[in-house]
């Protein structure tokens, strides 16, 4: 169910919007930042090139996550999805380690 399918009043609606906004702002930035971090450590190029290319690729991730947060079937699902993806990216970046 999407945001506007509900009635635009009441705590249920406001909570729904607040959770999705959290997932779509802080969550979206987190996923974008971790995408940049993971790619910077794993792209098969020299260190500075990997950082530059990773940063470029990461930008479109944020709007995609924001949009998904508002399209997901429920606010908790949006939040859980964002947290799950962020966790996987963080794990990947941690395992990859800082290149020498």
């Amino acid at each position: 169910m999407t945001v506007s399918a509900r009635r635009h009043t009441g705590w249920r609606y406001r909570g729904n919007v607040a959770l999705r906004t959290l997932a779509g702002s802080v969550g979206a930035y987190l996923v974008m930042a971790l995408t940049a971090a993971l790619l910077a450590r794993t792209l098969p190029m020299s260190r500075v090139e990997a950082v530059a290319v990773a940063t470029m690729i990461a930008y479109p991730v944020a709007p995609a996550v924001t949009i998904w947060a508002f399209m997901a079937s429920g606010p908790w699902r949006a939040l859980a999805g964002v947290a799950g993806i962020a966790g996987l990216l963080a794990l990947g970046a941690w395992v990859a380690g800082q290149p020498a």
């Binding site: 930042a33 971790l34 940049a36 971090a37 990773a54 800082q98």
Partner: peptide
């Protein structure tokens, strides 16, 4: 998109942090 990129070092420094840690000078010299 390109505008965001011009301010990358301030709005998305996490690729730099992941690659270089706190040694930003090394990144600039690379």
């Amino acid at each position: 998109f390109t505008g965001l990129l011009t301010l990358a070092s301030i709005n998305l420094p996490w690729g730099i942090v992941a690659g270089y840690g706190t040694d930003v000078a090394a990144m600039y010299s690379d």
